[in-house]
């Protein structure tokens, strides 16, 4: 059974907040292809936990500022 991912992300907003970092620059920072960054940003691909941490490190923010899961905000309170 194919299920759509429920994980959302703020990569696009974070890139623009970091001086309009390009997708290619982010891809080079985390060692993936530009197409993978596009797929993650559009929610078409869920990255591994390790890649998710690499993306968060690239933006120098905690991982939950980059990736969000429905219900996680209420549980955190």
């Amino acid at each position: 059974m194919v299920k759509p991912t429920r994980v959302t992300n703020s990569i696009r907003a974070l890139r623009f907040a970091r001086g309009e970092m390009t997708q290619a620059e982010l891809a080079d920072l985390i060692g993936v292809t530009r197409q993978t960054v596009i797929a993650i940003e559009q929610g078409r691909y869920s990255p591994s936990l390790e890649m998710a941490f690499q993306i968060a490190h690239a933006f120098k923010v905690p991982i939950d500022e980059v990736f969000h899961y429905p219900g996680s905000e209420q549980e955190a309170r």
Binding site: D28, G31, R34, T36
Partner: peptide, 13 residues
């Protein structure tokens, strides 16, 4: 053309 990121093979590939 393109950077290294367009030539490598990553985990999604």
């Amino acid at each position: 053309r393109g950077g290294a990121s367009s030539r490598l093979t990553d985990v999604r590939d």
